[in-house]
Amino acid sequence: MASRCIIDPPLAPADNMARDEALLLSARTGTRVTLRFYRWSPAALSLGYFQRWGDFAEMAEAGTPVVRRLSGGGAIWHDDEITYSMAGPFGAGPFPGRAAHIFEKLHRCICDGLSRLGVDGRLSDGPSGASPLICFSEPQKYDVVVAGGRKLLGSAQRRSGGAFLQHGSLPLGANRFAPGAASLDALLGRTPAVPEIISALVGAFEDGLGLSFAKGALTSAEEGLARRLACEKYLGDEWTRRR
C-alpha cells in the first residue's frame, strides 16, 4: 500500500484542520495512507465535533483561538506539542475495520515510538464513554498513559466513506488546560528535538503497520481543497459554532 509522510511547518488552526480533512477525503478515493505531523501557530483550542460552542464561547470571546475538529472527543489545547494524523482506508491493508482497533493499533505504535525516545508508555484501560470537556484532563480507554496513569497522548477519529482520519496530540511541555497531564520534556528531563521525535514515531509506525513512509507533500488538488476548506469551513462561524 502506497504511503507517504508529510511534515508540515507550524500552521494556523483552520489550515491544520482543513489539511487533515483534505487527506481524509483523498483517502476515500484511493488506497494511499498518509501520516502527517504538524504544529500550531498560533496556539489554539480545538473542539470535538459534537461539543457545544456555548461551553467555550467565553474563552473565544476573551481571545483564545478556537477551531472545531471533524473528529470526536473533548477539547484540546494545542500549544507546545506535536500533532500527528493518519488517514487511510479502514478494513484494508494494516488497518482494522473497527474504530477501537485502529485506536489500539496506532497507539501501540506510538508507545513503541515513545520507548525509542526513552519513555515508558502504555495503553489506558480507563472508561470509554463520553469524553470530558477538556481531553487531557483524564485518560480514556486506549489513551497512552505513563507512570501514575497520567495521560500523555490521546487521539480522535472521523470515518467517512470507507476511510478514516485519526489525529492526536503529543505534548512536549505543560498544558495550561490540563495541568495533571504528562509531557515529554518532564518525562525525559530534556526537550527532545522535533525531528528526533518524528523520526522515532515514523520508525514505530513503519514497523507496527508494515508500511514504508516516503517523505511527501499534499498533491496540488489536496492543497487546493485544503485552502477552500480552511476559508469556507474552518474559519467560518457556521462550522465553529455549529452546536
Binding site: Y49, F50, G72, A100, F103, S128, Q140, G154, Q157, R159
Partner: peptide, 14 residues
C-alpha cells in the same frame, strides 16, 4: 450518502 452522524469512543461516523 450521509444523512446524519454518531459519535462513540471519540469517533464520529456517518
Amino acid at each position: 450518502e450521509p444523512f446524519g452522524e454518531v459519535e462513540s469512543v471519540k469517533t464520529v461516523a456517518e
